[in-house]
């Protein structure tokens, strides 16, 4: 039952709960780190060693993303050169560039189309917050308003080294995750099949302006003006 290959469905966490072990034995085993942790280790090792990004470029940052696959940087060393064109086979969505309001529904839809476990890297100032185009009427102020982001890369555009570093950070994060047993912190299994509502673009603005499940506007500080900009 501990075999992760059986837990392809989102009910994985309930599945591992139904293992015929009483809690005492389980905790003892976990203390001893016998099966659960070694399966977890193998699972994390495999996932972190083969993160396949989606071949998906938005703007300027996409060029640096492609550069990171080039011979000077070579993302292939980490096993991630397999840029899959179809979201169905990808693990990692690199939001590389400015997300406009017309494009945001498509980005969320692509995230929904990806199978679990999936990760998101927000690459560049635009994807994080709107960047230099933040004041514009057609630019989404950060993709994290709609989908959960695992790693942010600042920069405009970030260098390919930064892309590699973000990938290594993501790998570290994956290795820290615990999937089996109580207290799992792997969102792919705890939250199940993560699918977020696709905002609709009315031609003027996005509806809703953000997804409250994922993002909440920061609390207003007393000395700040209404629009939140100093």
């Amino acid at each position: 039952m501990e075999d992760p290959s059986k837990s392809t469905t989102s009910e994985a966490h309930t599945l591992s709960d139904s293992v015929d072990l009483d809690d005492a034995t389980r905790s003892e085993m976990e203390k001893a780190g016998v099966i659960v942790s070694s399966v977890d280790w193998l699972y994390n090792w495999a996932r972190s060693g083969s993160v396949w990004p989606l071949q998906f470029g938005l703007a300027c940052c996409a060029i640096e993303m492609i550069c990171s696959a080039g011979s000077r940087y070579d993302i292939a060393r980490f096993g991630s050169e397999v840029f899959r064109p179809s979201p169905r086979q990808a693990d990692l969505l690199i939001v590389s560039g400015t997300v406009t309001k017309k494009m945001a529904p498509q980005v969320v839809r692509i995230f929904n189309q990806m199978p679990e476990p999936k990760y998101v890297i927000a690459m560049g100032a635009c994807a994080i917050s709107g960047g230099p185009f933040k004041q514009g009427y057609n630019v989404l102020k950060g993709i994290d308003r709609y989908i959960p982001v695992d790693v942010y890369i600042p920069g405009c555009p970030p260098r390919p080294e930064a892309v590699l570093h973000s990938l290594m950070t993501l790998q570290k994060g994956i290795r820290r995750q615990r999937t089996l047993g109580k207290g799992s912190n792997n969102p792919a299994y705890v939250e199940g099949n993560r699918e977020y509502p696709v905002p609709s673009f009315s031609g003027k603005d996005l509806d809703p302006p953000y997804n409250p499940e994922v993002w909440q506007p920061p609390e207003k500080r007393p000395n700040m003006p209404e629009d939140g900009c100093p």
């Binding site: 837990s7 392809t8 989102s10 495999a46 083969s50 199978p115 099949n193």
Partner: peptide
């Protein structure tokens, strides 16, 4: 291992 454990 990754592909086997991925959501279908």
């Amino acid at each position: 291992i990754k592909m086997i454990t991925k959501e279908d």
